[in-house]
């Protein structure tokens, strides 16, 4: 059964046309999906629907087969502890005034999962599993490079042992050498803990390195979906073809 699902979801702002139109997606345990599209494709809107931050104007978001009701506190608590996220900008996604231990512990604190020594241990564990030293815990975000900050953001996302990780362009802001390292962290988490991964990206390269399936979006609609390799080697729509052709390749 799918863990997280969009069923014919559309989203429109009060004034203006729909930014997401009849999108259906399904993410099962251990699966990895890449959501690829250029600016204005509706990627961030879909992400905010999947995160329960906004509600679809029509259609539904299903979590464990249950329609997501934002007022149902018990359901939302279970949802929040199962579905976590990593954002694009490692500079804006960590509160500059909090130390790393406090940042990473926020889900544990807010969802009432663990406190005190128990929480501390889980935070240390999460930080270690993304490849950071323990002494990182007492520092502030500005003391870290972009790639390290993204590891910290990943640590925060996995500290409550979620089943689904939604990643919004998690490596787009990083240098290529750092990018590889962060992709490896995500891949290891996926392989070792069976974390389902949905990655939003404007760029096929990082999706190819991480996701089995790819959904190509354009103007708020799904234009093509399938196995990542198949889309890359033989895209069926013109748009997907132009996207694949535009990827800069090494000689």
């Amino acid at each position: 059964m799918s863990l997280l699902e969009l069923q014919g979801a559309s989203f429109a702002y009060r004034r203006g046309g729909p930014v997401v139109h009849d999108v259906s997606l399904s993410l099962g345990a251990g699966e990895s999906i890449g959501l690829v599209g250029e600016s204005g494709a509706g990627k961030s809107t879909i992400l905010s629907l999947l995160l329960g931050l906004s509600a679809p104007t029509s259609g539904e978001v299903l979590f464990d087969g249950i329609p997501l009701a934002r007022r149902d506190r018990t359901l939302m608590r279970r949802f929040r502890s199962s579905v976590q996220t990593v954002f694009q900008d490692p500079y804006s996604s960590l509160d500059p005034r909090q130390r790393i231990d406090r940042i990473v512990a926020e889900p544990l604190r807010s969802l009432g999962i663990a406190t005190g020594d128990d929480a501390l241990e889980r935070v240390a564990e999460a930080v270690a599993s993304v490849g950071l030293e323990r002494d990182a815990l007492r520092r502030f975000p500005h003391e870290f490079s972009g790639g390290q900050r993204q590891r910290i953001a990943i640590a925060r996302a996995i500290v409550c042992r979620p089943k689904v990780l939604l990643a919004d362009e998690p490596v787009s802001g990083l240098d290529v050498t750092t990018r590889i390292q962060v992709i490896d962290v995500l891949r290891r988490l996926r392989d070792e803990t069976g974390l389902a991964l949905l990655m939003v990206s404007h760029d096929f390269t990082s999706v190819a390195a991480l996701c089995e399936r790819t959904v190509v979006l354009k103007d708020g609609r799904v234009v093509e979906e399938g196995a990542t390799g198949s889309i890359l080697s033989s895209p069926t729509t013109d748009y997907a073809r132009s996207l694949v052709a535009a990827i800069p390749r090494l000689p």
Binding site: R179, R187, A208, A209, C211, L250
Partner: peptide
């Protein structure tokens, strides 16, 4: 690093059941 990412484009799984890159 660039080569790894570039290669992933060619070696991405073609059927949904095979393991990732």
């Amino acid at each position: 690093s660039a080569r790894l990412l570039d290669d992933a484009l060619d070696s991405a799984p073609s059927s949904s059941n095979s393991p990732g890159g």
